[in-house]
Design a binder for these strands. Structure first.
Lengths: 359, 359
DNA sequence: CTTAGCACTCTTTCCTTCTGAGTGCCAATA
DNA sequence: TATTGGCACTCAGAAGGAAAGAGTGCTAAG
């Protein structure tokens, strides 16, 4: 059953108005719009029909209409018009994008904070592996008697390290030897290919450094198994700025009780689907606590084999167009930025010499 | 002006009751306590006097009394009785303490989540430097043509690394040379001692690897300057479980707007004071947004030159005794745990061979 | 110094009424 | 046939007011 053009126009108007007011929209409000040329009675008839079709809902008999989840879905898929960021908006986005830290995890967490601030909604970021990782390079560095630094480079360009302290000291030569053995035996293996046999073999070959072997392998396994980095969730409180949670604090609490745990395992999975942006509208969410909550997710590239996800959490009534636009802007620029950092960062600061002022 | 024993008893009772009910305490409630042997009228007289002294407050004329900030302070400093954790409580604390990750930052963040969960309040963790850090060891590892891993070990036993990609490739020998130069010139220097002269000197000595020098030094500076690690703040929403924020969502929002930014710079400063536990009661907080909010902070040891802080944020009316007990338990065990991880972790998993089950 | 008694204060709660936005439907109109 | 003005009806939320209840402060007596 196709919608007439007028029905589409009405649905779109209702979503647009409701999104910004959070109040049910009445027939008069629609009729008063400049590009609507029929009376409120006509609108009422159309609204009744849209309600019949399940695209609109009525909080109670004598209230205006609000979009149903199905209505939102239709709006997102077909009716939503690209939101154009204003000059002011791009400007503050650009300012915000000047990330300070050089460390990956901190950058991701900063990005989350930014997105949350710019959308005024809770946001999360997470980095996910695109494919199975393998170790590309092992190194062992002597950092003192009995102190060894294990450095592990993975196929996705992540570098991990761990300080290992042993009660016995290991000679520099043995360390070198072990590193060579590790590189020979473990590189290009996935976590599944690690096994006890390998452990034995390497331990035998390791000589006096053999005590290190299980520690090293265990850590390598931990690194390889991690399918995604930390989930950085921030701005939870901003959800309360939304009218729907004003008098329903418990609902907001529930949302985050669920989100904290489940998001990590559930949401990234959805993103294997195609397209850089995904919407989870209210009841489409798996967890029932999130039925009244929507999530907009946007993917962006981070070098080799990794991908980042930015997500924004809000009430089902949220400005999908605007948020999509903002996330898109972020995603685009972040992709570029991470690429850049990953190759040659422009040597900053320092060059001018060292002023004692704190950063 | 000293308090009589009875006055102390009454003040303590009022705090205890108010802490658990969040309702003003009336004279009858006190008189009804088993170990109080005078009438409500007497209590009323005493309460009037305590109010006079500024230790109690009255929300309005016909309401019971609540402790004033000064009252809380007195309670904390002199009247508070050690809360003994129940067997159930220690049991769940112990269960919670089984941290999974081996990575420092993740551990800290997990600890925060735990504390928040166990106290049912927002909590944060942060690792702070006890003294100025210096670099202890540099290493440069070739990870591919033009890809170099910089590994930096600091005096506080932190190990940092960064993947540097150069458009030109550097020979293994030059890399070794540069590492040697770095170790010779930069170890045991504080951030303040870095300067342009050093940069020049090292660049000259670095030969073909000279393009790396500013990148390396810049990163080293960033690491040395960091006075504390990430602040991990979690469980913000739990603050809303507290009755004082039930109908004052904006207040809760304000708290976290302030806390997110200011906490990092302000709170740790207070901790330079002596004693492992510190209380910031309501108006003692610097930021006016936090006047109705208290913070309990507990220090714990993390090896060399670092110290951890766990903090719990709650309404001024919070169960200081219970929270102190719980934090204390955490602090004690975490100290031990971080010590342990820092030396020889018991080789876990793996040994049994590799089962394909996901963690 | 303590206590019973009592008048008084003030918040909280519950009920009622009122208002207004918005609908649904009908009959008239183009 | 599609649109429109008109009108009765519905219902949530605001506003007002009365009653209940908890707790105080004070006084006078023990």
């Amino acid at each position: 059953m196709e919608l007439t053009d007028r029905q589409k126009q009405i649905l779109r108007a209702i979503v647009d108005i409701y999104v910004s007011t959070a109040e049910p929209v009445g027939s008069k409000a629609i009729a008063a719009l400049p590009d609507v040329s029929c009376s409120s009675a006509t609108i009422r008839n159309e609204m009744a029909e849209l309600t019949q079709m399940g695209l609109l809902e009525q909080p109670h008999t004598s209230a205006g209409r609000i979009p149903s989840p199905a209505g939102y879905r239709l709006y997102i898929d077909e009716l939503m018009q690209d939101y154009r960021l204003s000059l002011d908006e791009t400007k503050s986005l650009n300012e915000a994008l000047e990330l300070k830290s050089q460390e990956f995890d901190k950058m991701m967490s900063q990005v989350g904070k930014l997105v949350s601030k710019m959308t005024d909604l809770p946001a999360y970021t997470v980095a996910t592996r695109r494919s199975e990782a393998v170790a590309k390079h092992f190194d062992l560095i002597m950092a003192g008697p009995g102190s060894i630094i294990l450095v592990l480079m993975l196929s996705d360009d992540q570098v991990k390290n761990k300080l290992i302290k042993l009660p016995v000291s290991v000679s520099e030569t043995d360390l070198k030897l072990l590193a060579a053995v590790l590189n020979a035996s473990l590189t290009d293996l996935t976590a599944e290919q690690f096994n006890g046999e390998l452990l034995d073999k390497i331990t035998r070959a390791a000589g006096t450094a053999s005590a290190l072997v299980p520690l090293v392998m265990d850590y390598a396994l931990e690194c390889l198994r991690q399918q995604h980095g930390d989930v950085h969730l921030t701005g939870q409180m901003r959800l309360l700025g939304q009218p729907e949670y004003k008098d329903a604090v418990e609902k907001a609490q529930e949302v985050f009780e669920t989100l904290d745990e489940d998001m990590i395992s559930n949401l990234p999975a959805v993103l294997t689907k195609d397209g850089p942006v995904q919407f989870l509208v209210g009841p489409e969410n798996v967890a029932k606590e999130l039925k009244g909550t929507s999530v907009v997710m946007m993917r962006f590239d981070i070098g080799e084999g990794m991908q980042g996800t930015i997500g924004v959490v809000g009430p089902t009534r949220m400005d999908y167009a605007k948020i999509t636009a903002k996330l898109g802007y972020f995603a685009e620029n972040l992709g570029r930025m991470f690429q850049k950092t990953n190759s040659t960062p422009i040597p900053p600061a320092l060059a001018e010499g060292n002023d004692t002022t704190k950063e």
